[in-house]
């Protein structure tokens, strides 16, 4: 079984297969819609897209678990509220990108961890576009 969870799904075009009415066959207008592959569905800009494997549980309350695959894209500027990948002390870290009073910081989705306020420059690598979990 495969379950796929998406963040920011509002940006991704999803094929609509018509309405289904319970109990009655529907004259669905399937022939009017096109199919896309999971690749196309999950990836916007292929040349800028990468994958990582989640290790810790710091984003567990956002529904991202250890062992999950995150699909990330290098974008020009992260937006406040995005889940981002940052390069800190020779390792990748994944947190919410937040801003308060002009100060950017990284916020985990797990009460066990504290927000990270960068002392120097914060190097944002990419923005999380999707999460894939295969059972």
């Amino acid at each position: 079984m495969q379950q796929i969870i998406f963040t920011k799904s509002n940006k991704i075009p999803i094929p609509l297969l018509g309405h289904v009415e319970a109990g009655f066959p529907s004259p669905a207008e399937e022939e009017l819609v096109d199919n896309i592959s999971f690749d196309e569905f999950l990836i916007d800009n292929r040349e800028a897209t990468y994958i990582l494997k989640v290790k810790g549980d710091s984003m567990i309350d956002a529904g991202i678990c250890p062992g999950d695959m995150v699909i990330v894209e290098r974008v020009a500027e992260p937006k406040v509220g995005d889940i981002v990948i940052a390069r800190i002390d020779g390792a990748w870290t994944m947190k919410f990108f937040k801003k308060r009073g002009g100060q950017v910081y990284l916020e985990p989705a797990n009460k066990k961890y504290k927000p990270m306020v960068p002392t120097e420059e914060l190097e944002i690598h990419s923005v999380v576009k999707g999460v894939v979990r295969k059972y």
């Binding site: 990468y50 994958i51 810790g56 990748w92």
Partner: peptide, 22 residues
């Protein structure tokens, strides 16, 4: 060495893998 469930020894997803993220 860093593979996902479903990937084989010689068959990987066609995207660069950046490793583990905390």
């Amino acid at each position: 060495t860093q593979t996902f469930k479903g990937e084989g020894d010689r068959k990987h997803l066609g995207l660069p893998m950046l490793g583990d993220v905390d």
